[in-house]
C-alpha cells in the first residue's frame, strides 16, 4: 500500500526535520507494532518524525485506526515505541511524568473523589500544602466554569462537565505539555463547540504546548497552529500544515473567514484523495 504523495499548496510545507531552538517535543523515527494474533503483526505507526515547538497548539488529525492516539500515548510515556525515540526537552521519554498532562476522551476521573478532590489530587501528590492546593483548585474550577460544583461527585455531572473537571485536574499540576486524546469526542455537538471555545480562551492566556488528537477537520483548524495529517495502515504523517489564522480566534468570525474555510476544504479534499487511492479493492 502506497501513500499518495501530497500536493503542494502555497501554505503546505513538507515535514522534513527543521529543528527550531525552542523544540519541546521531538519524535524521532518512531514505529509501533502491535501483535494482533500469534502470526500477525499490525504496524500502527511507521517511521514518524515530528518536532513540536514550545507553546504551539498542534493537532494530530487522521481517520480512526491511523495510530494518532498511540502517538500521543508514546509522548505521554504510557506506551513504549517498538523502535525510535520520543524526547521532551532533549530527554528520552521513558515513562509518564507530571511534565506531560493527559486529558482523555473517557475523562478518567476518580469517581470516589469530588470535583474538588479530583482537581486537588495532582497538587497534593506533588507536595503542595492542603490549604494552598485547595485555593488553587477552587480557582481552576471557577476558570473552567464549574463554580458551585466543588462538592459534586463525577457521577452527578454531565459529560461536558466531566471533561471540564478533567481539564482542570490536569492543569492543576502545571504540566508543560497538555496531551489531549480526542477530548471532546464523546460530547454532543453543542457541548463540543462550547468546550472548544473555552479551551481556546484558557489556552490563549498561558499558551501551554498542546498536542491535540482529533478526527474532526473543523476542530483541528479552529484550534491549532499546526495540523499534522496522518494516513492509515500503516500510520504515517502525510503532511504538516501551518494554520496561519489570527489569534485570539473567535468562532463566529472564523467560520465566515474564507481562509478558515479554505483550510477546511483543502484538508478534507486531501483526505478524500488518499481514501480513494488507498482504498482496498
Amino acid at each position: 500500500m502506497k501513500v499518495v504523495p501530497s500536493r503542494s499548496s502555497e501554505w503546505v510545507r513538507p515535514v522534513t526535520s527543521q529543528k527550531p531552538a525552542s523544540a519541546i517535543i521531538e519524535i524521532d523515527r518512531v514505529s509501533q507494532v502491535f501483535q494482533t494474533s500469534a502470526r500477525k503483526d499490525h504496524l500502527a505507526l511507521s517511521d514518524i518524525s515530528l518536532t513540536i515547538e514550545e507553546g504551539a497548539f498542534v493537532s494530530i488529525l487522521g481517520p480512526s485506526g491511523c495510530g494518532k492516539s498511540t502517538l500521543l500515548y508514546i509522548v505521554g510515556g504510557f506506551v513504549s515505541p517498538t523502535s525510535g525515540v520520543a524526547k521532551i526537552k532533549g530527554q528520552a521519554i521513558t515513562g509518564p511524568g507530571p511534565d506531560r498532562g493527559p486529558v482523555f476522551q473517557e475523562f478518567a476521573l476518580f469517581p470516589w473523589k469530588t470535583v474538588l478532590g479530583n482537581v486537588m489530587y495532582g497538587p497534593r501528590q506533588q507536595g503542595v500544602r492542603a490549604a494552598e492546593a485547595d485555593a488553587q483548585s477552587r480557582a481552576l474550577i471557577e476558570m473552567v466554569g464549574l463554580k458551585g460544583y466543588e462538592n459534586f461527585y463525577p457521577k452527578e455531572l454531565s459529560g461536558g462537565m466531566k471533561q471540564r473537571v478533567a481539564l482542570a485536574r490536569t492543569l492543576a499540576y502545571h504540566p508543560e505539555v497538555l496531551l489531549m486524546d480526542e477530548p471532546f469526542g464523546a460530547l454532543d455537538a453543542h457541548t463540543r463547540t462550547r468546550l472548544q471555545n473555552d479551551l481556546l480562551n484558557i489556552w490563549e492566556r498561558d499558551r501551554k504546548t498542546v498536542l491535540f488528537v482529533t478526527h474532526s477537520v473543523d476542530e483541528a483548524v479552529f484550534l491549532s497552529d499546526k495540523v499534522v495529517m496522518m494516513s492509515k495502515s500503516p500510520g504515517r504523517i502525510r503532511q504538516v500544515i501551518d494554520i496561519d489564522l489570527p489569534r485570539p480566534r473567535r468562532r463566529n468570525e472564523l467560520l465566515l473567514d474564507p481562509r478558515y474555510q479554505k483550510y477546511v476544504v483543502d484538508i478534507e479534499r486531501m483526505f478524500d484523495e488518499s481514501d480513494e487511492a488507498g482504498a482496498p479493492s
Binding site: G77, G97, G101, F104, L109, F110, Q126, T170, Y173
Partner: peptide
C-alpha cells in the same frame, strides 16, 4: 486511563 492519569501525576 485512570491509572495513566495517576501515573502522570507521579504516583
Amino acid at each position: 486511563k485512570m491509572l495513566w492519569s495517576g501515573a502522570a501525576m507521579g504516583l
